[in-house]
Every structure is written in C-alpha cells, then in structure tokens.
Nucleic acid binder design. Structure first.
Lengths: 242, 242
DNA sequence: CCAAAAGTGTTATCGATACACCCATGT
DNA sequence: ACATGGGTGTATCGATAACACTTTTGG
C-alpha cells in the first residue's frame, strides 16, 4: 500500500435522467436552478439529483429523488454509469450552489447516474419544496448549458437508452400511456431506435409480443378514422432485465 | 431541501473484475487477503481494488489498480456498475482490514466496478507490494466466499460480460493471445455466450470479420494436424464501443 | 496404422424486408 | 365529397442452421 492519504472528504450523489414521450418527441425532465449572485439572478437547468443520505442505498436514493420531484412511485429506473472526473464539480457557480443547498462543505463528487422512463400523462407534481421541473425537447439539449457535467451525463444516458431499448424493446411501454395506439408505439420506437419502420411489418412483429393486448376500444376525438387502442401487461412480457 | 446532514464521510473505491482465458476455461483474477486475527491468520480472497485518490478519475483509478497489480498497460477496461448498499462494508473483518491497510477511519463505501479483459499469456507481475494475485476458475466462484460483496460484484460482472460480448464480439480478441487458432476462438466464444456453435458455420461467419487476418503459420507441437494461426487487427475491426 | 483434431460446401428453413390499396371518420 | 390517417397480405431475399466426410500430423 502506497503512502497515500485517504482522509479527504468526497461526496456521492445520484442523478436521474428522466425521459418522457409526448406523442411526437422525446422529452427530458430538468430542474430550474436559480442562483442569487448579488447583483443579479442567474438561472440555468440541471438534472434532478441529490447527495445520498448517510444510510441510503443507490437505488433507494434514485427513487426517492423521483418521488420527491414528481410524486411518482414504481417508476422504471436503472443505473447506467458513474461519473467521477475530479474536475466535474469545479465550476465555482456549481460549488457555491451545492454548499448553499446542502449547508455542507463539498469537495469532490462522484455521481451515480440513473435513467428513468415515465409515462408523461401521469399527473405529476412538479413543485416539490421550491424546485420546479419542466419537460424539454431532447433535441434542444445541445443548445442548453446544464450545470456540472450534466450535458455529458444526459448524452450518455440517451445513448444508453437507445441501446437498452434495442435490447429490451418492452421498456418502450414504460414511456407510453396505459392505452396507446399502434402508431404511437411505432413512432416512439422509430424515434428511439432511429429508424423508420414499415407500418405493416412493424405491426406484424409487435402483435407477436407476449403481453400486448388489443383492446375493444378506439381512440376518441380524432379527426379521422379512430385508431384501435392497445395495452401492455408487464407480467406477461419477457423481461431480460439486469 | 430537507433538513438532512451531508457531512458524514463516505469513501469511493474502484474494483476490477479481471477476466482471462486459459484455452479451456474462463478465469478470474483474485487477490489473497491475509488478516492477522491475533490467535490465528484468516485468509480469503477479494477483487483487486482501491480507494480512489483525491485527484484521480474513475477510469484512471481502474487502470492504476491493474497496472500496480499486473504490470500491464493498455488493457481493455470498462465500467459496468456501482455498488452502494449501506451494509455492504459492514462485516467487521472487512472494516478492520480496510482501516488497517488505508490507515484511515472508513465509514460507508461506494464502489465503482470495472471489467478487464486480459490476455492470460502476457507475463504478469503478480507480486505488487505484498499482495499476491492468482487466477481462479470462474466455475469455482460459487464455492468461494469473497470479501465484502465481491461475490455479487463478480457475478454481475460475468453477466455483463456475456451481454457485452454478444453485442461486441470483437472484444473476445482481448482475451486471446496475439496468435490464436480458430478452435480457440470458437471455444472461447461458446463458453462466454453459452452456446455450442457449429464448426463450419462459425468459421464462415468469423472469416468475414474485418480485421481478422489468417497467418501463414501453424501452431507447433500439437499431437495431431497443426491448426492454422490467425491474428486480429483492432484498428480494422468495427468498434461499437460505448 | 491409428488416434485426434483440422478443414471444408451445399441445402433447407426461418425471419426480415419490400410494397399499395381500400377503409373509417370528422369536417 | 374530401382529406386524413388507419388498417391489412403476399412475395422475395438474405441470413442462419443443419449436416458428414476427408486430411494432416504425431505417436
């Protein structure tokens, strides 16, 4: 063992990259951060996250964060990567903000990042204890400068999510409302995987999915032929989870 | 922000699950840990790992650990999961050992785990500063009680590795010597993926791999027909890495 | 000459792809 | 009646899977 001191004081945080789908585009949930800089307010965005509590597991921390933020429980949540560049929390604005909100002297932070997939139609409480969250187009990410290295985290989350969906397509249903149309499913799939599927072939394949249930019901209030609704029974779907 | 104290003192470690292949079986590299318990010595095994240094990135820490342990550089190394159960480092034997070797009071530890794939024939320095490492059959893992939650980590590493190889089969070449036979490649592949491939079909597919070079050379000192040798040029292989 | 593993092609089956027209509904 | 998206089947192609005998070498 080298003569190295290990008594510095790092912190561990969990951040969640929360994805949604509004029927047309992929969305990401971001928190607005307002910083009082004396002469003016500075405002930007960040991923939902928190330093983990002393006796808290990582998965537990991630679902706590989501529940505090959105009021939702039983959300699809999976860890995907940890970020520990020593410089990642060195921006003075970030450091000040952290020490203000935590009331603690903060040195280095290692962040364990999670992906969450949520049904955007579930009514969400967006004002937990003075933070506000909003959905943003994923496409706009490139033009936003998020706090810390959250741009990098979100990008990596996106590429992980795409890979994950190709591996476990059933996870797509986490992003759709309980009842959805074939077209919704297909356009979501195509956006995520980055292809344009043939309508008939897509349908053919999807109808073989165990757990997919065609309902005796059509979507209402559409200005054309009403599309059939489907739902998905998780317990019957094959789960190749981790 | 809740009224929660964040000034407890966690530590972050990086552990490496190092895989090798001896021509027949998958191997894992473990470190022998000897604990002086007063009346007797207790000895068990653990994954190679270390608390990260104060100014060290995660990937950097992982390759430092590997270099210190084996003398190897440029090893295939990829992060796969972080472990942060609050109870995971609560075994008194583990705590004592940690505090002895680090000379630091250790509370909770979050571990970022990596997978390494190495060519078992590269000559390896196994005695770095009083630790000894050895290759063990992966099959024997179930019968060994490793330190901390290292059994769990190793198991998860294995399942990650299998999935990873199915996705990026080229990574198999990281486990083979520079020159290898088709049979070696196939049996390695079959062990990892858990199938038994047809000899001819396997050959057909593999020969299409960009970067695979048949050599004008055969393996020597075999008690039967000498098999052809192949090598693999990484730069020409398609890399769907992360 | 015997044992042991290496090397080598063809056929059948299954899954993936390409493709175009009529239908139901709201305005 | 028309505009808009919904719904449906067949034929081709390519990839994967099945399958067995001859060759080389060392002992």
């Amino acid at each position: 063992m080298k003569d190295v001191k290990f008594n510095y004081n790092p912190h561990i945080s969990v951040d969640c990259v929360v994805f949604g789908f509004d029927g047309e585009k992929l969305k990401i949930l971001l928190i607005e951060r307002n910083i009082d800089e004396g002469k003016e307010f500075y405002s930007d965005k960040k991923l939902p996250g928190s330093i983990i509590y002393e006796e808290e597991g990582l998965d537990t921390a991630a679902s706590r964060i989501l529940t505090e933020l959105t009021g939702l429980k039983n959300v699809f949540l999976t860890q995907f990567h940890s970020f520990g560049d020593p410089q990642r929390s060195s921006n003075p604005r970030d450091v000040n903000w952290l020490e203000m909100t935590t009331q603690t002297k903060i040195g280095r932070i290692v962040t364990v990042a999670y992906i969450a997939l949520i049904k955007i139609d579930r009514k969400i409480v967006f004002d937990s204890e003075s933070t506000t969250a909003k959905w943003y187009d994923l496409d706009d990410l490139a033009n936003m400068k998020l706090a810390f290295d959250h741009n990098e985290i979100a990008l990596k989350a996106l590429s992980f999510m795409r890979r994950f969906i190709s591996l476990v397509p059933n996870a797509l249903f986490e992003l759709l409302p309980k009842k959805f149309t074939m077209t919704e499913l297909r356009s979501l799939h195509d956006i995520v995987v980055g292809v344009t599927s043939d309508v008939r072939n897509f349908q053919k394949k999807v109808l073989q999915t165990p757990g997919l249930i065609p309902l005796d019901e059509v979507k209402k209030n559409v200005p054309h032929r009403a599309p059939k609704l489907y739902s998905f029974d998780k317990r019957k779907g094959s789960k190749i989870f981790f």
